[in-house]
């Protein structure tokens, strides 16, 4: 894990299709902090995470790691790991095979056992993913996301389907990462269980396009 002091975005504007999702969005995230993205459905939490990961191009604005623009650098994503709504797991393969592939893909096969243990899915190691419940699948997806060199973790509603034990394991894993100087940006509707002094909150509703402006476009 490389040391990054600050991850920030300035004046981000993103369109989906022809519809603007948010504009003028800025944040600064220092090392060892979690940025919690809140906001009503459709306010652009997932869009923001995808933009930060480099999957969507921003119309305007910049994303900076320690003052260096990611967009200008062609979005080299070595310092970012991303978990979206989709789990990127193959139903045909076992839990271990799935995690092993992604660990090899990111060059961190040494982290496989640790991440399996962190998510408490050791007993599922040799179970094909198609037999897992949705919570177990989500844990497996989290485990494969952790097999990565990244300092910055981008999680899109990681808690979906998790039980109390799963939430607890996730909170502990996130806290350990923050204590080591990592950063997390996490879209969520539920409390994450990470102590408040680690957490900053960003409400996407503050940057959404006012209804009146949207209506003007249609007239």
């Amino acid at each position: 894990m490389s040391t990054i002091k600050e991850f920030s975005a300035t004046n981000l504007c993103v369109d989906r299709g022809d519809r603007p999702v948010f504009k003028g969005l800025s944040f600064e995230l220092p090392a060892g902090r979690l940025l919690k993205l809140i906001g009503p459905n459709g306010s652009g939490k997932s869009t923001l995470l995808k933009t930060l990961a480099g999957l969507i191009e921003a119309k305007d604005g910049d994303i900076l790691v320690d003052g260096t623009s990611l967009i200008a650098e062609d979005h080299i994503a070595e310092c970012i790991t991303y978990l979206g709504h989709k789990n990127a797991l193959k139903r045909e393969f076992t839990v271990y095979e799935n995690i092993e592939f992604w660990a090899n893909f990111w060059g961190r096969s040494d982290k496989i056992d640790q991440s399996i243990q962190d998510m408490g899915i050791g007993y599922l190691r040799d179970t094909p993913v198609r037999f897992l419940s949705s919570g177990q699948t989500r844990r497996t997806a989290l485990a494969r996301t952790l097999c990565h060199n990244a300092t910055i973790w981008l999680f899109d509603e990681p808690t979906v389907g998790l039980d109390d034990q799963g939430l607890d394991l996730l909170a502990k894993t996130m806290q350990r990462h923050l204590e080591k100087g990592g950063m997390i940006i996490c879209a969520t509707h539920v409390p994450l269980g990470v102590p408040d002094h680690f957490t900053k909150t960003l409400n996407l509703a503050d940057f959404s396009i006012p209804m009146s402006e949207l209506e003007e476009q249609w007239l």
């Binding site: 990961a53 999957l55 070595e78 991303y82 979206g84 989709k86 990127a88 992604w102 893909f105 060059g107």
Partner: peptide, 16 residues
């Protein structure tokens, strides 16, 4: 198709 639907393609796009 399968890679697109389960999100594998997203990860490939972010990969090295």
């Amino acid at each position: 198709q399968a890679d697109y639907e389960d999100g594998t393609l997203d990860q490939y796009a972010l990969g090295p």
